[in-house]
Amino acid sequence: MMKQVTHFRTLVRAGLIAIVSALVVLAAPGVGQAEESGESEALDWSFNGPFGTFDRAQLQRGYKVYREVCSACHSMEFVSFRNLSEEGGPGFTPEQVKVIASEFEIEDGPNDDGDMFMRPGLLSDRFPAPFPNVQIARLANGGAFPPDLSVLAKARVGGPDYIYALLMGYEEAPAGVELAIGMSYNTVFPNHQIAMPEPIFEDAVEYDDETEPTLENYARDVTAFMMWTAEPKLEARHRMGFKVVLFLLIFAGLLYATKRKVWAAVH
């Protein structure tokens, strides 16, 4: 009896420590930053949760928004055309992706004359950058450099929720707020002054499916697309995680029984 009481106390203690340390760990990364960059509401994304997957149609729409709007200024340097038809992604067919790739001009060479030349994109090519270097990009954007979008959804506190909130966060500057030249007012951006002008408006992109061409849908779809470019193996990760956790639970049960059996002799 006493024995069990002490066991129980040890367990309670262990539990308390685990909870306190978990709280510290979970609080630590975001601390200090969430306060200033405004709150971004947690949205119900299809890729959330342990079984989350991407919505193929949404990624395809998001790609279209990226292609027709974002790609004018933002590069996506770690994404290749072939990725668009890979498992766990937007689910384009390889034929569709070949067409998509061929719409881009890629610099290649040097050829036998020693010259660089332009050719249509191939599956193995990466998405070309809109500007050849940072300096030109700054020059064309009033001194601000449009960040690369490949991993941006993982590079911001709040991730996709923040990006969606940012895209939806453009407003008239309230009275008394003096905007610097070329800046726009955004409710979630740190200090509320952002160099990117409001990028997208209703009806700016024509969707191929029935989805309403609203600002909310554009923002949602392109954000989901950016989450995929940042974490293209998310679906594989969730799938494998389920198997691994299940395996470990059974294994732990077996080991517990084994341990009990082994120790039975001395208790």
Binding site: I250, F251, L254, T258
Partner: peptide
């Protein structure tokens, strides 16, 4: 019980080894 536990250990170790070997195969790029 001991055999089942041992079998799980072997399966677990082998499954963990495969990614470490397969990573040496030509990658997607």
């Amino acid at each position: 019980l001991y055999i089942a536990t041992g079998a799980f250990a072997v399966v677990g170790a082998a499954s963990a080894a495969w990614p470490l070997i397969h990573q040496m195969n030509p990658d997607a790029s």
